[in-house]
């Protein structure tokens, strides 16, 4: 090493630096590659309608993955998002039969925020590992949802037109859900870069001790963060039910694993301190296309889960290698 000069940086190290500085480039290349493979396997499948559909399905996933992105930036994770989204969707669908849609939506977001708050208090104040805490809350929420279902058995359910328009509709071939998603994504991306709160998420995830020495009281940030994550998961549930149009007790639960995978693929470090929402959005698109591809190839559900699990592990392990020496 002592003889090495600035000129002769090994290719491996240069590549690692490039990957770290420009995480979006390889992701977009991967996305385009997958689309090309799909088009080759099923010529003609990629058209305007398919693209709109892919975006429609990617958006609820991307919103759910925003919960993972934000919590992972602090070194945490939120495994309750699947059931939280389901709770919001189910509560909204049953409340809308007796209330105005706007009120039903407001009511439905309340349990989402409360669950998030409980997660935040457990993780921030009592220092329970977020993974265990959010898993526990998701168990409680699952039971709670079933109890709730029995109390509203008679009321039936409905999807308000506004949500159906948002979730499924297209205007001039462009999915309506972008109306919600584009501003939301902009707020998250800018919020992470240009607000004190966003900076603190990175700071806590990068080095909680350094943040402490600079006067940051981490628990306050964590509590607010998980409440926010609950709210975002609730919103994702509402968009998703507008797309699927059939509220059930396990509506958004299968989206949990992909939401983690999307954030990890998108370059957000599961150890915290590094990443952003832009990558996560591309990650959600990649996973949606990959799901289509696996369906076309008739890969069974089991193999899909194995693949997702290994993707998370491989990306994380690669991350350890990339960050540790340079």
């Amino acid at each position: 090493m002592s003889t090495g000069t600035a000129v002769a940086i090994p290719i491996g190290r240069r590549l690692r630096r490039f990957l770290r500085d420009q995480p979006l480039v390889p992701l977009i290349v991967l996305l385009v590659g997958l689309v090309i493979v799909l088009e080759v396997l099923r010529p003609g499948i990629v058209n305007e309608r398919w693209i709109a559909n892919t975006i429609k399905f990617a958006i609820p996933l991307a919103i759910l993955a925003s919960c993972q992105t934000l919590t992972m930036l602090t070194g945490g994770i939120d495994l309750s998002v699947g059931i939280v989204a389901t709770v919001s969707a189910f509560v909204m669908a049953t409340q809308v039969t007796t209330h105005d849609p706007a009120i039903a939506i407001a009511i439905s977001l309340l349990p989402a925020i409360l669950i998030g708050l409980a997660n935040g208090i457990g993780a921030g104040v009592f220092r329970v590992h977020p993974l265990i805490m959010t898993l526990g809350l998701s168990l409680i929420a699952t039971g709670g949802l079933q109890v709730y279902q029995r109390t509203v058995l008679a009321t039936g359910s409905a999807i308000p037109d506004s949500l159906a328009w948002l979730g499924t509709g297209r205007t001039n071939g462009v999915p309506n859900s972008l109306v919600l998603f584009v501003p939301l994504a902009a707020v998250i991306i800018l919020g992470l870069r240009r607000t004190g709160f966003g900076r603190l998420l990175y700071a806590i995830g990068d080095n909680e001790n350094a943040a402490r020495l600079s006067g940051v009281r981490a628990w306050q940030v964590i509590v607010v963060l998980y409440a926010l994550s609950g709210l975002l998961a609730g919103i994702a549930g509402l968009v998703y039910v507008g797309l699927i149009k059939a509220p059930s007790l396990s509506l958004a639960v299968p989206l949990l694993l992909p939401s983690v995978a999307a954030a990890v693929i998108g370059g957000t470090s599961i150890f915290g301190g590094r990443g952003g929402y832009g990558g996560t959005i591309v990650g959600a698109l990649i996973l949606t296309v990959l799901t289509t591809l696996l369906t076309v190839l008739q890969v069974p559900e089991g193999a899909r889960r194995i693949l997702f699990g290994f993707i998370i592990l491989a990306v994380t392990a690669a991350h350890v290698r990339i960050t540790e020496d340079s």
Partner: peptide, 26 residues
């Protein structure tokens, strides 16, 4: 081998083993 924290590795393996179970019996 990966030097990734236990909690993350076994979270990934949770999904992997779940998938394996589904492959054996749907």
């Amino acid at each position: 081998l990966t030097r990734v924290p236990d909690i993350v590795v076994t979270l990934a393996m949770l999904f992997v083993w779940e998938g394996v179970a589904l492959l054996i019996l749907r």
